[in-house]
Every structure is written in C-alpha cells, then in structure tokens.
C-alpha cells in the first residue's frame, strides 16, 4: 500500500472512524512504514493536544442571561394548557422543517445564500459573462497589428520577439 493518499485514512483511523477492513489496512501498513507510523503519532498527538487545550468557560453574565431566558420559556408554555396560537404556529413551522425542528435555524441558514439565489428563470448566469470575456480575450484588438484585425492575437509580427518559455535565469 502506497503512502501517498493515505493521509485521509490515517486521519479517520486516529478518530476511530474507519471500517474494520480499513483499520486492518492501516495497521498492516503502519507496521512496516515508519513514516506513516510517525504521521499517525502526529495525528494522535495533535488530537490530544487540542482536546486538552484550556477551554474558556462561558462568562457568568451569559449564563445568567441564558438561565433567565430558559426560565421564561419554560414558564410561558405550561404542560397543562392546550396549544396556543404561537405553539400551533411553531408546530406548523416545524412540520415544514427537517428532523430537529430548528425552524428558525433553517430559515436563517437559507438566508445565507440569498444574494446568490439560484432561480434560473430569473437569474443571469455568470457563465454568459465569462464567455463574453473569453471571446474578448481571443479578439484582443488593441495593441495588435493592422494586418490581422480580429485575429487571435498578433502572431507573425512577434516572431523573433518572443521570450522562450524555458528562458529562465533562476
């Protein structure tokens, strides 16, 4: 098994997210390959280092705010009362949205791409613009020779003027 392209597999192995067959592959390879064994060690170590990084705790004022909001939310919908309009509305919204019912979250997520909304029947495709630019690049009228108007760039008059591709003095 080649080392190249193994990176992702090693990473998944370090996360214990490989199938049994993949795990066996990794273990067999690493037994013989010092470099990949070392890479795996680095992956494991960086995982551990990240996990043990000092995590800033939530500031007290944030916790207070959240506790109060939680208390309010719980008080607002006691179990005994029937569904309020707000609750029915929420229920309707959640029926439209996928599993976890984060109706607001999903709506917000949809808003992310609003500027680049893809409604083909109304939207102007970027590709049209890029083709037009490409066309202009090929015609490139300015700076060209009068003898070949609209050609794909001056050719004959550059003969002898060209900087060779491999002319590099590095």
């Amino acid at each position: 098994m080649e080392c190249k392209g193994l990176e992702e597999l090693l990473s998944a192995y370090a996360d214990r997210e490989t199938t049994p067959a993949e795990s066996a592959q990794v273990e067999a390879h690493v037994a013989d390959c010092r470099a990949c064994g070392l890479r795996l060690a680095v992956l494991a170590k960086s995982k551990q280092a990240l996990a043990s990084m000092a995590a800033p705790a939530a500031p007290r004022d944030l916790k207070e705010t959240l506790r109060r909001a939680a208390a309010r939310a719980e008080a607002a919908s006691p179990e005994s009362s029937g569904p309020s309009f707000g609750q029915r509305l929420s229920a309707w919204r959640s029926a439209l949205s996928p599993r976890y019912g984060f109706a607001f979250g999903l709506a917000a997520f949809l808003l992310v791409g609003l500027w680049f909304e893809r409604r083909p029947e109304e939207a102007v495709p970027l590709d049209v613009m890029l083709s037009a630019h490409r066309q202009y690049t090929l015609e490139r009228p300015l700076g060209g020779s009068a003898t070949r108007p609209g050609a794909s760039g001056p050719v004959s008059e550059d003969a002898g003027n060209d900087l060779e591709d491999d002319e590099t003095d590095e």
Binding site: R119, P120, A123, P125, L126
Partner: peptide, 18 residues
C-alpha cells in the same frame, strides 16, 4: 496586452454563479 471585463446586470436581477 492584458484584457479586463466589467459586467453589469440590470437592477434586481440575480446572478447565477453555477
């Protein structure tokens, strides 16, 4: 030598970036 294009779409038209 170098060419540059500036495109402008009509107001309120959306852009399909593909």
């Amino acid at each position: 030598a170098v060419v540059l294009s500036l495109f402008q779409s009509p107001p309120r038209a959306k852009l399909d970036l593909g």
